[in-house]
Write a protein that binds this DNA or RNA. Structure first.
Lengths: 334, 334
DNA sequence: GACAGTGGCGCAACCGTTTGCATAATTGGC
DNA sequence: GCCAATTATGCAAACGGTTGCGCCACTGTC
């Protein structure tokens, strides 16, 4: 039903190759012919079929972006930034959601492989081995996990976790809990490692609980486990969990930050809206989205550079942290 | 570089058509041959190229979903639901974000047209005329706007707005403000119409302010305009604006709901997390996502049915609404 | 006025699949 | 053991484009 290149050729009395060149290499066709072709194309409502074009050129001008959970407020800013960066280079971005399921992750890479010029894997839950296999099917850029020999962009959460711990220690906290994120998350391991180091260096104890899903519900559910550590402060894997924790604490009548200080990571929009406003480690998500697209496109056009881009994080102090309570809080109260 | 159907054919000593049938019509090929082909395909890492297949079958098994702003928390649940519904029918969902830009909206439909079997247009900002034109390029299903002769799924926000007004009136409010959403939004017109009707029926006055962008920032910015109406209660276009408004009120020291009652629409996750918890009209976004996918796929497979699906909304009363203050609040205070 | 250079265009092969049709091999009925 | 029906496979033409190559005017040069 829609007009094809042949329809346009017939209607304008030229060969299909001329029509093709009119669109993909205009300088090769006589201006008169060109404008004639363009106007008949216009009147027929013709548009080149990108999929057919991709078949022979090998370039789809599409980018895939795979994300564990679109509903996690961490991702939308990253997605938007990637979108606009891609669009500015005449690429389109296809976003897919895996529901935190590693199997769906793999399926999606396969499905996207031939329809895109590359895939951005955001916070992948799959194993490194699998990533190694998949990279043979389609160019990959990984976000939030460094992978040997693959272009990747990560946030310096180690630095963020360290400054968060130091901030707490400076407020007199000596017993700190770490609310752990999902298994398989590189970021989670990184936070844990760095926080432990920083705590040790400062003579504080760090008790980890988890793993949990990186959701608000999981944060609320982890409330008792956190309280049982006897900590006076807690660093959460991300803001969503921190906010869930805040909810749980509120329900139990525990005041923040007077009785317990809470620090999140990510600085999602929500963190400014809840009360108390959340102290958190801001991660440059938009920059990450842009950088990932840039790496993919450059990697794709020139020699395969496999750099690792590390973006800086920054502690944002708000109202959920304060001095350690003079009296240690009595462990758990039902 | 990746294996093609010809590689598999050569390696397993059969014609390409046999390989093709092994994948797309297995019952037509001898079990022995089939397993031989499958195993060589496996060892070569062959996967059918969906784009090439689409070229001849005319079906891509992809669905496009166009959304004004992925970062608006209203959409992610809808997207996730559409995704999983699509996946369960062996389709993939491609999500694109327009940044609230009607021009980008049109571009995206064109770009997606040949790569998908249909497009879900969510809360489109473009004109009905344009939609009429675009529907010739690709099957369309519209969400959150009814379009003559096109399958659409809408929420019954009229009912929601009415119950919200009735709820406020029942609490003694007589002067109600309506915080308007973006120009071009059908939902906005619908809310306005229905709220005005309900207010009139109840003998209350309704003062509209706006239009505004449907964001938290716009809600906060609209704070003074809302206060100037002298209303004791306000119904906002959506939760995001209501939350922004709450922020603004908090900054101005105006207590909610004691001095001013606030009702939102959508029931996004955030609305349960802020304080006071937001009274709001819940819209069945996940159901809308599923319904839209269903309509597209059915519309696509059988005779073109152009139904309009209307989903019910429901008022959720929380803590941001209460009795009208005895003394009318003194209009504005700097 | 012969000739090289060039600009504009057509020809046809190709990208990776699917699919209607033809053909060959197998089966079943009698 | 012959014919019809069935099953399994091959052949080749599509799908909607792109692109290397060759042909045919034209120029401009000497």
């Amino acid at each position: 039903m829609p007009a094809t290149i042949r329809d346009v050729a017939r209607a304008s009395g030229v060969h299909v190759s001329t029509v093709s060149r009119t669109f993909s290499a205009p300088h090769l066709v006589n201006p008169d012919t060109r404008s004639r072709v363009l106007s008949t194309a216009e009147s027929l409502g013709y548009r080149p079929n990108r999929a057919a074009r991709a078949l022979i050129t090998g370039r789809t001008h599409n980018i895939g972006l795979i994300v564990a959970d679109i509903a996690n407020p961490f991702f939308p800013p990253l997605i938007k930034a990637a979108e606009s960066q891609a669009r500015s280079r005449d690429y389109h971005l296809f976003v897919a959601d895996t529901n935190e399921d590693p199997v769906a992750e793999e399926d999606l890479v396969h499905a996207l492989a031939k329809q895109v010029d590359g895939v951005l894997l955001c916070s992948p839950r799959m194993s490194n081995d699998l990533i190694e296999k998949l990279r043979k099917e389609v160019p990959l850029v990984v976000v939030n996990r460094p992978v040997e020999g693959l272009p990747a962009v990560v946030m310096d959460v180690a630095h963020g976790a360290r400054t968060a711990i130091e901030h707490l220690v400076a407020h007199g906290h000596r017993d700190i809990a770490l609310l752990g994120g999902p298994r398989g998350s590189w970021t989670n391991r990184e936070i844990r490692r760095s926080a432990a180091l920083a705590a040790k260096a400062a003579g504080a104890t760090l008790t980890a609980v988890g793993p949990y899903q990186p959701t608000e519900a999981a944060g609320a559910a982890a409330c008792d486990a956190v309280l049982e550590t006897g900590a006076t402060a807690v660093l959460a894997y991300n803001d969503l969990m921190a906010i869930g924790l805040l909810e749980g604490l509120h329900d139990r009548g525990i005041r923040v930050p007077e009785e317990l200080s809470v620090v999140g990571i990510d600085d999602i929009m929500l963190s400014r809206l809840i009360r108390p406003k959340l102290t958190t480690v801001a991660t440059p998500t938009a920059a990450a989205g842009r950088a990932a697209v840039d790496m993919l496109l450059q990697h794709d056009e020139e020699t395969r550079t496999t750099a690792l881009v590390t973006l800086q994080t920054q502690l944002v102090v708000r109202d959920s942290t304060g001095p350690a309570p003079a009296e240690p809080r009595t462990a758990s109260r039902p």
